[in-house]
Design a protein around this nucleic acid. Structure first.
Lengths: 253, 253
DNA sequence: CGAACTGTTGAATAAGGTCAAACCAGGTGG
DNA sequence: CCACCTGGTTTGACCTTATTCAACAGTTCG
């Protein structure tokens, strides 16, 4: 062991954080992710209050959104793009603890120091809530805090499900589980049948699954040659036999 | 891979659940774990309200407290003993997602179906809150819900830290991290210097660390022969060189 | 068009798993 | 009180899976 996946080659320019303009968020009425995440649970009045503190922030692909051990700077909902959340070992070994998509919540409203890193995988738009005002709103709006609790428990269950994957599944099962997860997520958000778009590269998949890029690549090749998936250009994947994939996810072959 | 640790040999008699008497909890004033868990955040009046719905339940060593996929039956605080929380794969492979000690919260107040299993490792006393009344209290007492949120975020961070361990650490680092965790926990609760008591067996440690019993045993032997720990009877461990252990936890050797 | 990545494939290696035997401690019963 | 049994634990020999190392192919972009 000791698989160090070279941490970020070029795409890291977390400078200009102060200079970056903070826009008003796009109107909540037209927001794509209003039906997801934090807003679902709020009535229109509460939603309006939340909106008064919200700002929109953009991050370019590869940019660090926040780092572990630093004071919490960003809390909010992903509106566009994809984010990876990860932890590091002193020697650089990396574990991705989650990929976040539109509607997902990023950052912790509870701790005041970040426990993990977050990086934009593609151009990302975030609907951000500043720390102190959010605290106040959480204290004021029970539905908001309750929704946060729901999200936290969902995340916890997902993390524990991933512990099962990392601790007990084979490489084949891990890759199958990963693709199933993406497939199901896409389907639940109105997947039309077109190939899935993987916003992360092989190295990031490997760091999510506790494997090396080579092993991930080999497993993809296997799935491809058995006709379960079709790959075009390594970032677009079409799931041809979802049932077989689901079956492989739990019991190897 | 495919390490199946024989699931519970004899110690499982989850019968008599209905017949089991539910006692009034011991007085909160004398409760050992009042300063931990859910109660810390509450003022005396709130604590009293929580007490009115609390009952005390006992489980014998090896008894199943609840099972995944079943309606939530038990939510509460561990008062005495130790609990393991775990997930299973269809073929019986097991991943322990957490060991719970006095003061820790067991069960989810958010889902209505259990996402994992819980089993008593030793005779356990739980301070249990029935589902519906707890929901009501959570809605009524903001401090209670906020405390739950804090706990959930703490658990989430721990789970993600464990993902890092399971995905990226070597066997040696895993065992060292595990012992450090127990050692730190013991110290934070007034550890006197006596040997640590491990309420779980090697198989359960293995299922927590994503290893086999043999590997765990070998790593223990290594630590023993290098004088970092001293073992007496396989359930009592004395940490002789905490600094070295801590160092091994992050970077192998 | 070529440099620089990113991804794929192959061969060799090592970490940890599997299988099996020995060991040990705690409980039982003579 | 001690021999015996039994389940958990340790240790050893061997094997498998995934990693490592290395070469090659495909993309992307200046």
């Amino acid at each position: 062991m000791g698989q160090v996946s070279e941490t970020k080659p070029i795409r890291d320019h977390a400078i200009g954080d102060l200079a970056r303009p903070r826009h008003e968020p796009h109107s909540c009425e037209t927001c794509d992710v209003r039906s997801l995440g934090i807003c679902v649970a709020l009535d229109p009045v509460e939603q309006a209050r939340l909106r008064t503190i919200a700002t929109s922030r953009h991050f370019s692909a590869g940019e660090t959104i926040f780092s572990a051990e630093e004071p919490v700077s960003v809390i909010g909902t992903v509106v566009k793009g994809a984010v990876k959340s990860y932890k590091l070992l002193p020697d650089g070994r990396q574990q991705v603890v989650g990929f976040l998509f539109p509607g997902d919540f990023v950052g912790s409203a509870i701790f005041n120091v970040n426990r993990c890193f977050a990086e934009a995988l593609s151009p990302v738009e975030l609907c951000v809530f500043p720390y102190a005002p959010l605290q106040k709103l959480m204290a004021d709006i029970p539905a908001l805090e309750h929704q946060m609790l729901k999200i936290a428990h969902g995340d916890l269950d997902l993390a524990q499900e991933w512990m099962l994957l990392l601790g007990r599944k084979t490489a084949q099962e891990r890759v199958a589980t990963f693709l199933c997860l993406l497939f199901d997520k896409a389907r639940s958000r109105g997947y039309c049948g077109a190939p899935l778009d993987l916003p992360m590269n092989r190295s990031e998949i490997a760091d999510y699954l506790g494997l090396t890029i080579e092993t991930v690549s080999r497993q993809f090749s296997k799935l491809k040659s058995s006709g379960i998936i079709a790959v075009s250009g390594s970032h677009a994947i079409e799931v041809r036999k979802p049932e077989m994939l689901a079956q492989m996810a739990a019991s190897s072959d």
